[in-house]
Design a protein around this nucleic acid. Structure first.
Lengths: 236, 236
DNA sequence: CGATTGCCGACTGTCGACAGTTTTACCAGC
DNA sequence: GCTGGTAAAACTGTCGACAGTCGGCAATCG
């Protein structure tokens, strides 16, 4: 993950094999080194990574709970492939969570939260100028994560984080198109304005518009490629 | 999943060891055979259940992702204990999900959905008459699960199911009080009426009231016992 | 008498191995 | 050439074992 850079480790890295394997797999999936629907062999992975099967299994289970892998009994793990319907569902849930979050947030909009969000928009704008698509996405998600954080409901944040893994998956899978930097910027500025106004309705409208745009981008991508049939990988 | 109070061994024999262990642990936690904050020893569990540590570990990881257990590196797994704040968060998220669900549902309220929900209310009323507290809770949750199901967003349903595990935990932990059977009944009838009316606002109001009542019951329980301090078990 | 340090037991993280099942490859029959 | 069945190969589910680590306890020192 791009987040790992900020993690306070780097002193001793001899521990937590499971986490390391999970990170590796996450990266590999997002960067499409494993294709959607592809089967992952435990033995081969453990050979490639130089670890035993136990941590690989645990890591795979972890990714399964995050919705990146799907396990079929006695068959193994498969890379999750999202069809159009599931994609819509993901964005619908995202809308559900973020609407609720911004309603809470506008009622407790502290100067601290305001500053943090504004700073993050700056970072995001900077990232938008660069060519690093992954970083743009991460900074974008980070902004929304901050919103959820300052909304003051840890469980809500966790639900969002859960969803984020899938979100990251479908965004990276499809969005090859470069969103214009200023589009990203203004889109987020509107959220800040709505929060500043203190009006729940304005916030509601802003977040609906914001997520609607993101959704359109992604869903359009699916429609164009037409790569994913109606039943790609059965959910469970 | 029938579960005998204390019988561990020989229960586990057929297939899907992980799932069975997970079910066993879930039941044991909900029925308070393991107390909140208590540490679970992998070796002891594997001895008691007559299986090796591998499935126990995987099951524990599963319950961790469901929020029933918490793992500390090199220390093992602990039974999750919710403090008052986390409890509020859970119910707030529940409100978020169910509001969204009922809004979707009222827009696609098919006769099939209507019938299914009405049947479930019947079952629930029947269960409410009985003394089986667990069954009452399960049937109640099942009603809400049906609502989420007919709302037509699988991912939303999954988020609800995730939350349900924690919900079950705190409800069972605290609610020793018997809700009056007719209270339960009318409370759900109001939801059906709101859906029948086809008015989103009515639905919104009905679900807010409904969950507000449930929340008050549980939160009051916490306040009364005062058993849980502000920091019981650190979340992660 | 209180604080610190070293030791001991217990436990987790990880590993390699075995058994049963699924998939694949191959061959015979149509 | 294609289909169906059989056998080998590969893989998952599960197990027991070993080593490093953590917490607690006791002996030692100030």
């Amino acid at each position: 993950m791009a987040f790992t850079a900020s993690a306070p480790r780097a002193f001793i890295q001899q521990q937590n094999l499971v986490e390391q394997v999970a990170d590796y797999l996450t990266q590999a999936i997002i960067q499409q080194h494993f294709l959607p629907g592809e089967r992952l062999s435990e033995v081969q992975l453990s050979r490639d990574l130089g670890v035993s099967r136990a941590p690989v299994r645990e890591a795979a289970r972890l990714l399964e709970s995050r919705g990146l892998l799907i396990s079929k009994p006695r068959r193994g793990f498969f890379v999750r492939a999202l069809n159009a319907v599931e994609l819509e569902d993901v964005f619908d849930l995202r809308l559900c969570l973020e609407r609720h979050a911004i309603h809470r947030l506008v009622e407790r909009y502290t100067p601290e939260a305001k500053r943090a969000l504004e700073e993050q928009v700056d970072v995001l704008c900077e990232a938008a100028e660069s060519n690093d698509g992954t970083r743009r996405i991460e900074e974008d998600l980070q902004f929304h994560r901050l919103m959820l954080h300052y909304a003051g409901n840890e469980r809500l944040l966790r639900a969002f984080d859960d969803l984020t893994h899938e979100l990251r998956l479908c965004i990276t899978l499809i969005t090859k198109t470069h969103e214009a930097p200023d589009t990203i910027a203004t889109s987020h500025f509107k959220l800040l304005e709505a929060l500043d106004s203190g009006s729940p309705d304005a916030c509601h409208e802003a977040i609906d518009y914001h997520i609607g745009v993101a959704r359109k981008f992604v869903v359009k991508g699916v429609g164009e490629t037409g790569e994913h049939s109606d039943e790609d990988i059965l959910p469970r």
